[in-house]
Design a binder for these strands. Sequence first.
DNA 1: TGTTTATTTGCAATATATTGCAAATATTAT
DNA 2: ATAATATTTGCAATATATTGCAAATAAACA
Lengths: 249, 249
Amino acid sequence: MIKAERQNLILEYLTKDKKVLLDQISKILKVSEDTVRRDIKELSDKGLLRAVRGGAVHRSPIPLHFKERQYIDVEHKQIIAGKVLDYIKPDMVVLIDSGTSALAAVANLPKDIALTVVTNSFPVASVLEDHPKIEVLFMGGRLNKTAFSTSGFETIEAIRNIRADICLLGICSIDLNWGVTGADYEDSLIKKVMVETSKYIIALSTSDKLGTSESFYICAANRLDVIITEADPAEVDLTAYSQAGIEIR
Amino acid sequence: MIKAERQNLILEYLTKDKKVLLDQISKILKVSEDTVRRDIKELSDKGLLRAVRGGAVHRSPIPLHFKERQYIDVEHKQIIAGKVLDYIKPDMVVLIDSGTSALAAVANLPKDIALTVVTNSFPVASVLEDHPKIEVLFMGGRLNKTAFSTSGFETIEAIRNIRADICLLGICSIDLNWGVTGADYEDSLIKKVMVETSKYIIALSTSDKLGTSESFYICAANRLDVIITEADPAEVDLTAYSQAGIEIR
DNA sequence: TGTTTATTTGCAATATATTGCAAATATTAT
DNA sequence: ATAATATTTGCAATATATTGCAAATAAACA
């Protein structure tokens, strides 16, 4: 077990559990607590987490390094991606935000579909490399090196010039009272503008995010047209959502 | 087992296992750990992986499909990159176009320099991942999937909003009569606007491109401040260029 | 073909990094 | 304030990197 690997794992545990404890990591990875502490120190210096007494937690607005996140929850994301495909028809203009769920959806698009994809996410653009019939419009702006996406004024201006047929919103918290909310300010701003300018909104979420809320408001729940989760809709109580006019898949 | 074959295998193991270990590869391929280490060093210089103590891990989530072109003329580009560094000072705003020479220059920047880099090239942005003090502004536009850069109206508009201290122009043909010219229309347009809006222009070229011309005009030769080539300036006839007020390195 | 030249590879000596331990210090909770 | 717990620091053992060099191999050339 080499240092780089260990640090990757620490970041994975962090995204999964929202926190890591020194003794927990020390036991799992079978190294001394000192080593874990030093690893956390290094990661903290890179800005990838916040070291606290006893372990580490998320550094609030900054999303974790994409590298670490893309392998998490792969099965769930595959399921979500499959359901998304029903909504994507040839020649649509699809607006896609950053986030690994949307990325999974894009990665599962058929190779020969003709689309225009508008995105601010490097990985999304990159995955479309071998889809010859998909034209990609990339929205510029300040580059966020951890999420590999752009944000800020230029990005928002670029979105305002687009009126997409469909918008794929990466995982967010959804609550019928509080609406759709996000944990990262810059990212939530982007999502907000995307929702404003798109005709049809598909939110990608996980069933455990239904009924929860975060700090930054994106839009009212009934602004969403569809919510796609990894769960079987037959097994969740959806009456409240359908009453609000939202389809759940 | 030839070197190139070995290095390809290393990259394969890397994509499969997300990491490679020196002793593991050394045993599998039956070469010494030193050789593996040198291989990893080379691959790391090309930006294809990240060398860490004990082995290597992925560099970034963005598969640099740039691979093919990156192999070409590596030594020359390293030389060029070294010379470029003399012109980059802390806190400058540096405009960088797509192209592997500029990429090589960027990849060789010191890890802790503070800069603002403005670019339309994915690989350039991607290579700056581990330079925490470099802010990256990415210029949006239509994505060119072969060069992995953006171009078109939006990109040009974005450039017009920047007044960079220095512009690094990727390899072009330079002729004292015909000026600076490029072979690709869209790309030449971008370069043209970059030259118009930047204070100081550094052209990266190879000595065999001096005195040649391509189809699309970028700017007059004397608009360039410096031409950097891989050759020793003492061994080329530069009188004509210096008379035009161009420094050659 | 045979000879020369350059590159690649492995080895050994040396330098540097990583890790776990223990003592000293700081922090938190009661 | 006191005890319990976490962090920092220095140190030694071990693992890994770097460097120069020589042997092996491949490439270039007559």
